[in-house]
Design a protein around this nucleic acid. Structure first.
Lengths: 185, 185
DNA sequence: CCCCCGTATGCAAAATATTGCATACCTGCC
DNA sequence: GGCAGGTATGCAATATTTTGCATACGGGGG
């Protein structure tokens, strides 16, 4: 039941439509909590029924109408209480790690390629994180308290990303050496 | 559909029962792919029906009978092919990160406690990883290729864990300073 | 003898998430 | 005019995961 809280969290400062929320999830909170647009639309509806969000239609020029959602007082209270409840970590699930358990002379080339792709993707993501950090969190101590929490989450993303890059390099090195050994035969 | 492949991967070297598998998942592969015993039992059944696993009953002394599962040739082939298919990363979902987006003067104390608990838990896990590394992977280059793949996965666990500890320290520092500021009023 | 604990397997229901559509508006391009 | 593409919302069917049981064996302690 925590997608609901992630969504409400995204609405703390600004009202958003499902579409905007889905994109915000891609860029910010979604780095720590991913959700497809279908999930988001369904959850928004449920939250509105519960009275934690209000909805209003907004006509737009040149675009279809949208439905803006905002936190109600009840929603804010529910969110505030939730912070004290037990956290759960849903460990990430990664096929690649399972594949590594199956490393063989046959598939080593493929796994090197896959790791290389991961490296590239993580690099892109780190550029994004760094850009966000520079633009919005250049001087974190000066920020209001809540934003410092967001900064810490971003910081975790950055550290984790850098560590992942380091691992990719280490793995690629090891695999390259092993493949050389194989080729030498 | 990758839980099935994680299970088969766990059976590459040894036949295991559902119960043993559930515990092995806790300690090894489960660090990268978690599954409850219910999931495992169901999946084992499906895989046996598909012909990828064989099952045989084993009577034990002092314990209930168990059902041992082993990879069939078809299973091994399916696993071998799967390695070439697209990987997917299911990003981890962590309530704590969402909670940090809700940081406030009221809940800062609670969040410090939660992060402290995470730090402790990760420390314990790192001890386990390090123990495994020392016992089984003291000299990785000397290992057969497949085991080197397993080593790389372990290595990722270790690096990620160390990085997480570093983040916890950084976060605890920042939050301690902020709380001092609040208390000073 | 009874209860708890560890071993061992499982069902059923509910909650969540994914996949594959479907609709509709408007802009810009060819 | 047709078509692609971005905006915007949604349904329905599956698949996956979680939750909450339920059963049963045998050992050890009180």
């Amino acid at each position: 039941m925590a997608l609901s809280h992630a969504i409400m969290t995204a609405l703390i400062e600004d009202d958003m439509s499902g579409y905007e929320l889905a994109k915000a999830f891609d860029a910010s909170l979604g780095l720590f909590w991913n959700a497809s647009h279908q999930q988001i639309y369904q959850e928004l509806r449920k939250l509105a029924e519960k009275g934690w969000l209000n909805r209003r239609k907004v006509a737009q020029r040149g675009k279809p109408d949208k439905i803006l959602y905002g936190l109600t007082l009840a929603g804010r209270e529910a969110l505030g209480e939730w912070v004290y409840r037990d956290s759960r970590v849903q460990e990430s699930k990664d096929d690649l790690l399972v594949k590594l358990y199956n490393l063989s002379a046959e598939n080593i080339g493929h796994l090197r390629v896959e790791i290389g792709e991961r490296r590239e993707a993580m690099m892109q993501r780190l550029y994004l994180y760094e850009r966000i950090r520079r633009v919005h969190y250049a001087n974190p101590q000066a920020l209001p308290l809540r934003r410092q929490g967001v900064f810490l989450a971003l910081r975790l993303g950055i550290l984790a990303g850098e560590q992942y890059l380091a691992w990719c390099d280490e793995a690629l090195d090891l695999l390259a050496r092993e493949q050389e050994k194989l080729d030498a035969r």
